[in-house]
Structure formats: C-alpha cells, structure tokens
Write a protein that binds this DNA or RNA. Structure first.
Length: 435
RNA sequence: UCCUCAGUAGCUCAAUGGUAGAGCAUUCGGCUGUUAACCGAAGGGUUGUAGGUUCGAGUCCUACCUGAGGAGCCA
C-alpha cells in the first residue's frame, strides 16, 4: 500500500510512489501516451500514462476514461518544468471507482457555456477551477473576518434567524407562517439583537445568513446573503470607521497572503488589492453630492446614491472610500443624528474601489431613550414590538455603534467578479431557487 | 414591479421571407509530451409555447413562458 496524499501535498513526495484519490478533470490522448488531468479538491495535476510501461488492459481502461469519472491513481511524483503545478504523476495503476458513461457524459465541458446553463448545473459547476478558486477566497475572507474579531476582543454572539418584527422596513421581509401567537419573519439584520449583546459583552459580532425580499435584479444582489455585523458599546462613529478600515485591510492582507494561486486563476490584478492600506479616504455626504454634481450626476442633496453614483465617487481612489453623515431622512430610525446638525445622521458607508459599490454600511445608534421613542413614532413602527430594544436605553444606555459587511459583495470585489452570484455555493436570487 | 435584450443540435453560436449549418461534446479511426491538444469520418433538429400574416416563416405580427442585463431598494 502506497501512502495516500493530495495534489496540494504531492510536491513533498517527489520521487515516491503515492496514491491520490479524485476525479478525471480532462484527458488528452496521443496514441501510445495519454495525459489524464486529475482533480482532487486541492488542485489539478497532470498524470502521464505510457502504453509500453503498463499492462495492455490497464492502458485501454485509462485511454477510455470519461470526464469526471472517479478514480484513485497510483504513481510516482516527478518534478517537471512542463507541468502546470510543477509536478507530474507517472501512472503505475488506476482504480476506477465509477466511470461516467459516454451515453450521458458530464455536461460541463472544458469550453464556453452560458450563464443560464451553468447556473442550472451549479452543483457540478462548483468543480471547475474558477468556481473552486472563488469559494476558496470566500473561505479565506470569512476566516480572516473571524480571526480579526476574535483577536480584537469581540465575542461571537449569533442572533436569531426568525424575528418577530422588522429591523428596517416591512416590505422586504420574508414571512414565515408557523408560530402560533404571531407572524414571524426571516431576519434582515442581526443588529438590534447585537445592540443588546453589546451591552452584555462590550464588543460582539454576529455572522450569519440574511434575507431580503427585495425585487432586486442586479449583479450586486442576492435574496439570501451572509453578513458579518460587529457592534461595540461606548463606540462613536469615528471608532466604527476605524474598526471597519482595520478589518478590511486585514481581510485583504490575508487573501493576498494565502490565496495568491486562486487570485492568479481568477486573473485578478493583485496590485489593486495591494493598494488597499490604511488610511482610507474619507468624505462627508455633503462633499460627495458636490463631487457627483460636478461629474454630471443628477443627484440632489437628500437623495441616496445610485450604483452609478457610487462608481463615480470611488473611481478617484485606489482604496475603499468612506462616506459619512447621510441625510437623517434616508437612514434607518435608530441612526444617531449629528449633535450639531440633526438633519444628518452619524452613519457611514464604505464603497469598494473599481466600481464595486457599497460593501459596508453602519454608524452610531441612538442611545437617548426619548429620541429613540420619537423616531419609532415618526417611522410609524409599533412600540410594543420594540419594548426590549427600548429597555437597552432605560438600563445603562451608552453611545454605541457598529456596521454590517456583506460577504458576497466583499468577495466579488476581492476576486474581481462581474456578479455576486459566483461568490456563494448556491445563490438564491429573484428567479433562482435551484439547484 | 418597470424598462431593454435574448431563446435554433448536449453546449457556444451562424443562417437577405426561399434546401436548417459550424465549432466543441459523443461514437469510430490515427498520433509517445499534450496544455480548452491535433488530424480524418459518422450520428445528432417539433428553431421556447400557442395563434396569425404569407404561395412559402428560424426570420414578420400578437400573446404567453423562460432567462439575462439594468432601474428603484439595499449589504
């Protein structure tokens, strides 16, 4: 029995005979020599099977292997300049676990396919090199997020998925008909609960799926997406901005450090990511509106930015842009107004460079009980549903704040993708529930 | 929800209102260093659905279905 290894580890076994279990990615034939490309989840490796060196029947079996057949290859690892990963495997034996029949071949060939076809075959598309690379960058980004908060005094306190009331608007909530005493909804943010846990733990974060029933149909939207939301007691807007900046720099650094190969597969211009260092440029909403108007945007003070506006603003910078103090009117009810200018709120958005738009939204929350109560009334929200939330202002209220970052938008930016749908294994969108 | 565009072979796409075609995939044959390998041959079609105009519709018209891009809204 030869030692079992993986393609990623194969280089350590140069000169040895090893076993690698995987799938046939592709096969090139040239008469008496064939080149099966093996895929094992850690990478791709070219194998070489020479007719004269193998039993007749085995060579025939290898020659007739079909794409994505499951195989266990035994062979000697050999360093080779010609190989993509630097190493090749000289085949000594191949055990076929399952041969994909040619009557029903693997549908995703190594050629071009349209997005509809690929999305319908998402369960298989994940095996392709590009999707593999994207999801590994996603994993790295998530690990970096967790490492960042875990090493900066934050406690992970996850918030519920079923919630009794809206955090923001009611129109974009998914209703769940199960609970006997009340209607329930799928969460659209863990923030309100985070505010409670922050008063218990000081600094907290939650990281989970979020659901928005927005009829959005753009490259930046998913119906179900993952959001990391830190919340900090005794923090003001400036502290929120500082943490957001530090976290983004940390994530980018980690991806550059550990996922170079994946970024290469994705043909990502890493110099764009290497430029992402503190300090990020900062501007107020007021200035952003002036800049947009000078660039020909039709935006007026008081309006929210469109996708094009975000691109216009961020195009002047090589790193994320922080815009703060938006009009109070267009922000959520819990946003702390600027003490000197109550018409603007202490909220901040972080716009990723290269036109990727908003990846982070956050700010300082209202800590004054009377003001919060007034805002609930202005927004015509049911006071009863927020009784526990109001308690947080009754019992030891403090200035506090936090933000939310959509992981898919962040990964789309890190990878340089056209669309967020490729950044999650099984995207859920307005017209996409399968597979 | 609204606007725009698109549905033709398993896939990616051609076809002036006049005989539905190519590349890839599949099958068969050839090739001892291929890199989305290459060379030769074969099979493969209710042109999204239902109507309509016309001597004749993949092509023009109407409705519907499916999808893509964008808008508003948002991370």
């Amino acid at each position: 029995m030869h030692p079992r290894t993986t393609i990623a580890e194969a280089g350590r076994h140069a000169g040895e005979t090893v076993q690698i279990a995987g799938w046939l990615y592709n096969l090139r034939k040239s008469g008496k020599i064939v080149f099966p490309i093996l895929r094992d989840g850690t990478g791709l490796m070219q194998c070489v099977a020479v007719k004269s060196a193998l039993p007749e029947a085995l060579f025939e079996t290898i020659k007739d292997l079909t794409q994505e057949s499951s195989i266990v290859v035994t062979g000697k690892v050999r360093a080779d300049q010609r190989a993509a990963g630097g190493y090749e495997l000289d085949v000594e034996d191949i055990q076929v676990i399952q041969r994909v029949p040619e009557s029903d071949p693997y549908p995703i060939t190594p050629k071009e396919h349209g997005i509809e076809f690929l999305m319908d075959h998402r369960h298989l598309w994940l095996r392709s090199q590009r999707q593999h690379a994207i999801l590994r960058v996603r994993h790295e980004a998530i690990r970096a997020v967790r490492d960042y908060f875990d090493s900066h005094g934050f406690t992970l306190v996850d918030t519920p998925i079923f919630t009794p009331a809206a955090c923001e608007g009611t129109t974009t909530l998914f209703e769940v008909n199960y609970f006997e005493d009340a209607k329930a909804y799928l969460t659209q943010s863990g923030q309100l609960y985070n505010e409670a846990t922050a008063m218990a733990f000081g600094k907290v974060y939650c990281f989970g799926p979020t659901f928005r029933a927005e009829k959005s149909k753009t490259r930046r939207h998913l119906t179900e997406f993952w959001m990391v939301e830190p919340e900090m007691a005794y923090a003001d807007l400036e502290e929120v901005k500082r943490v957001a900046e530090e976290m983004v720099v940390f994530i980018v650094g980690r991806v550059l450090e550990n996922r170079r190969e994946e970024l290469r597969v994705l043909e990502r211009d890493v110099s764009k990511l290497e430029a992402v260092q503190a300090p990020f440029p900062r501007m107020t909403y007021d200035d952003a509106v002036k800049i947009l108007q000078s660039k020909g945007s039709e935006i007026e003070w008081g309006g929210d930015f469109g996708g094009t506006d975000e691109t216009l603003l961020s195009e002047d910078f090589d790193r994320p842009l922080m815009v703060d103090r938006y009009p109070t009117e267009i922000k959520a009810f819990y946003m702390q107004p600027d003490p000197g200018r109550p018409e603007v709120a202490m909220g901040v958005d972080v716009l990723a460079p290269e036109g990727y738009g908003e990846i982070i939204g956050g700010g300082q929350r209202i800590h004054d009980p009377e003001l919060l109560l007034r805002r609930l009334e202005e927004h015509q929200l049911p006071k009863e549903a927020f009784d526990w939330y109001l308690d947080l202002r009754k019992y030891g209220t403090v200035p506090h704040g936090g933000f939310g970052m959509g992981i898919e938008r962040c990964v789309a930016w890190l990878c340089g993708l056209e669309h967020v749908r490729e950044t999650i294994a099984f995207p859920r969108m307005l017209y996409r529930l399968r597979p």
